[in-house]
């Protein structure tokens, strides 16, 4: 009986520890002045079809429409409830923040990670695209827009 239990444990162990991959956004903001910028990360297909928002670094909904690329991409493809689930606080100037986002079914060929940053009366950075894959190693962005450093790692 005990030997059977031990064998069962050995066989089940790999399945019990399998979990959804998680993207970890480790970001540090530049020093700045005035209103802090809005930052949003989302995934779309290579043909531009919106898949889902990963994280919105701002809770003030009335300004979401200012993130032009993301807002037009997600229109009609994501519910407010789905968005509310991935909203977090605005990182302050010079601050450091770590956000973990489960991404089941996202690390596939044909998927692209997009990042958009915008500040009132400031810059608008919307062109960053990171192609994803099942073995995507993550990426490091340094001094890009309002990000002094953004390290995106994958926990599998």
């Amino acid at each position: 009986m005990r030997s059977l239990l031990a064998l069962a444990f050995c066989l089940c162990e790999p399945f019990a520890l399998a979990a959804d991959p998680v993207l970890v956004f480790d970001l540090t903001m530049v020093e700045g002045s005035g209103d802090a910028p809005m930052i949003v990360a989302w995934v779309e297909k290579t043909d531009g079809t919106f898949v889902r928002s990963l994280h919105m670094f701002n809770k003030d909904k009335k300004y979401y429409k200012e993130m032009l690329t993301w807002a037009s991409s997600r229109e009609g493809r994501e519910t407010e409830k789905e968005l509310d689930a991935v909203v977090g606080p605005t990182p302050a100037w010079g601050s450091h923040q770590v956000v973990r986002v489960p991404v089941p079914g996202i690390l596939e060929e044909g998927m692209v990670l997009r990042i958009e940053q915008r500040k009132d009366k400031g810059g608008h950075y919307k062109k960053r695209k990171l192609p994803l894959s099942p073995d995507w190693p993550g990426a490091t962005l340094t001094k890009e827009g309002y990000l002094a450093n953004l390290m995106i790692t994958v926990e599998r």
Binding site: V30, G32, G123, H124, Y125, K126, K127, K129, G145, Y146
Partner: peptide, 10 residues
């Protein structure tokens, strides 16, 4: 891939 609208102060 392309140039963004940079923050002039930055």
């Amino acid at each position: 891939e392309e140039e963004d609208q940079a923050d002039p102060m930055l």
